[in-house]
Simulated assay, not measured.
Amino acid sequence: MQLNGKTITAAPALTLAQLLKQQGFDGSRVAVELNGSIVSRNDFGKVQLQDSDTLEVVQFVGGG
């Protein structure tokens, strides 16, 4: 699986929400593209990941 351009290994039947937590992302502060399509935050817990998936995760940062 590719995460932000890096190859990672994930457990079988892992959900997107589980992967985000495992990788240290706050699911409420990210946008996720899975295989070229944006995933709704409401679906993070429903999306089952595959070894062949490509993910791009963008974390929102506050500032002023």
Rank of each mutant, 00 (worst) to 15 (best):
Phe44Ala: 07
Leu34Lys: 11
Phe60Val: 02
Val32Asn: 01
Lys21Thr: 10
Gly62Ala: 12
Lys21Pro: 00
Asn4Gln: 08
Ala13Gln: 15
Arg29His: 12
Lys21Tyr: 01
Val30Cys: 03
Ile8Val: 13
Val30Phe: 02
Gly24Phe: 03
Val32Asp: 02
Phe44Ile: 07
Gln2Phe: 04
Val32His: 01
Lys46Ile: 09
Ser28Ile: 07
Arg29Asn: 13
Gln23Asp: 05
Thr54Tyr: 04
Val47Ser: 07
Phe25Trp: 07
Leu14Met: 14
Asn42Cys: 06
Ser37Gly: 08
Thr7Ile: 12
Thr9Asp: 13
Gly36Asp: 11
Phe44Tyr: 15
Leu55Ala: 02
Ala10Met: 13
Arg41Asn: 04
Gln18Asp: 15
Thr15Ser: 15
Asn4Gly: 06
Asp26Lys: 07
Ala13Glu: 15
Gln48Ile: 15
Asp43Gln: 14
Ile38Ser: 09
Val61His: 05
Val32Glu: 00
Met1Ser: 08
Glu33Asn: 05
Ala31Gly: 04
Asp53Trp: 09
Lys46Ala: 15
Leu3Gly: 00
Thr54Phe: 05
Gly36Asn: 09
Thr9Arg: 03
Phe44Asn: 04
Gly63Leu: 08
Val57Leu: 02
Leu20Cys: 05
Gly27Gln: 13
Leu55Phe: 02
Gln59Phe: 06
Val39Leu: 02
Ser28Pro: 03
Leu34Gly: 01
Asn35Phe: 06
Gly64Phe: 10
Ala11Gly: 05
Ile38Asp: 03
Ile8Leu: 09
Ala17Arg: 11
Leu14Gln: 13
Thr7Gly: 03
Gly63Lys: 07
Asp53Ile: 09
Val47Arg: 14
Ser28Arg: 14
Gly27Leu: 09
Val32Tyr: 02
Gly45Ile: 06
Ala11Pro: 05
Lys21Trp: 00
Met1Ile: 05
Val30Met: 03
Leu49Ala: 10
Ser52Gln: 13
Val57Ala: 00
Ser52Tyr: 07
Ala17Gly: 08
Ala31Leu: 13
Gly27Lys: 11
Ala10Asn: 07
Glu33Ser: 01
Gln59Cys: 07
Ile8Trp: 01
Asp53Ala: 06
Gly64Thr: 10
Gly45Arg: 14
Val57Ser: 00
Val61Pro: 02
Glu56Cys: 00
Phe60Gly: 00
Arg29Glu: 14
Ala10Tyr: 05
Val30Gln: 01
Leu3Cys: 00
Ala17Glu: 15
Leu49Glu: 08
Ser52Asp: 14
Asp26Gly: 03
Phe60Pro: 00
Gln50Ile: 05
Gly62Tyr: 08
Gly36Tyr: 12
Leu16Trp: 04
Asn35Ala: 10
Pro12Trp: 08
Lys46Gly: 11
